[in-house]
Design a protein around this nucleic acid. Structure first.
Lengths: 195, 195
DNA sequence: GTCTATAATTCGATAGAC
DNA sequence: GTCTATCGAATTATAGAC
């Protein structure tokens, strides 16, 4: 690789990293090409040159994988805790992946981001759930999504007390039983018969 | 009231109603003064004249009350169902109050809207919960917020299947036990001791 | 009380020099 | 490969006629 090409790839990477930071902080509309370029220490024109448009930059900034663990290798009574622990690690890991924060911030006003989130649960969470809960897996995945995304919204975006200040293990202790019920509750009793 | 004043107040009301519709549909940034004026059948300048600025218009468009029922008048085993049923009615009532949808759409990128949502739970949900659950009411209110807002996000904003197409009673049947546990679970066992 | 015209910014995106 | 300069469009907000 020639020196100019090497500088190019590092600049590209700096721009992408800056874009992720800006999208995560401000959402899609408020994040500007100019701010991204400034944070990356480069020029707005280069951002467009490398990623085509703001939409292209956003698409590049939100490619990722949930890396869900295989749920059939954990004790059936622990699948709820396993799931919430995995998601918390994804949000608070070192370094934390900004992709989920970006998608959640953007999805409420950005149709493509909303589609992406639906895709994450349909293509990654749902199959993992189907393995351990063959009955009504889509309903279970939707309920899991509502609690996981609601927790993320309150803890990381809205910063609702006391959720925002709780230790991860305490959050897990509160939320895990909910997910466990969504994943393992019998259809009669816990759930309605027609859902 | 003179005829001109009467026309003024109706125009004011039309603008406010149009603003609520636009904010609910597009979020804060994408909703424009022009679009609000157009929907209200009037002029962009009038919007500013009446509400001062876009921020002032937004503040006026999100004044409302959750109108929570008093939880100490329902059977203790039914408080979870009562809460989720009330929130669903708020979202899907006829006519549905757009305020919650506006706040949720805006809160992820609008600091004041996020503060408003925190205020709703702190000033209206928390006191109602304190009456029926004196131990750790703030924690319980936060957990309730995470599930209620997560449900609203998935059902009304992201339109996650199958949540978006479920009948209200089926949603209630799935979510009520979760809220019931958040509201009534003993601190040892259901929750961690240090949360 | 209402509207036309426009000021003042700010944005995404492009053209072209170096 | 990078940057300067700028275009064209959109926005909020204002000034002033009717």
């Amino acid at each position: 690789m020639s020196p100019t090409q090497a500088r190019s790839t590092t600049t590209r990477a700096r721009i992408l990293s800056a874009a992720q930071a800006q999208f995560a902080k401000d959402g899609y509309e408020r994040a500007t090409i100019r701010a991204v370029a400034s944070l990356a220490g480069t020029d707005p024109a280069l951002v467009i040159r490398y990623y085509g448009s703001k939409e292209g930059l956003f698409a590049a900034a939100t490619h990722f994988d949930l890396c869900l663990p295989s749920l059939d290798h954990v004790a059936h009574a622990d699948i709820g805790e396993t799931l919430v622990r995995h998601f918390l690690a994804l949000w608070e890991g070192n370094p934390a992946d900004p992709s989920l924060r970006i998608l959640l911030r953007a999805a409420v006003t950005h149709a493509e981001a909303a589609t992406r989130i639906r895709g994450l649960f349909a293509e990654q969470v749902l199959p993992a759930i189907r393995v351990v809960a063959p009955d009504r897996p889509a309903l279970r995945a939707g309920l899991v999504a509502s609690q996981i995304l609601g927790l993320a919204l309150c803890r990381y975006i809205l910063e609702v007390p006391p959720l925002v200040d709780m230790k991860p293990d305490d959050v897990i202790a509160c939320i895990a039983p909910t997910l466990q019920r969504y994943l393992a509750a019998p259809l009669d009793g816990g759930f309605t018969a027609n859902a």
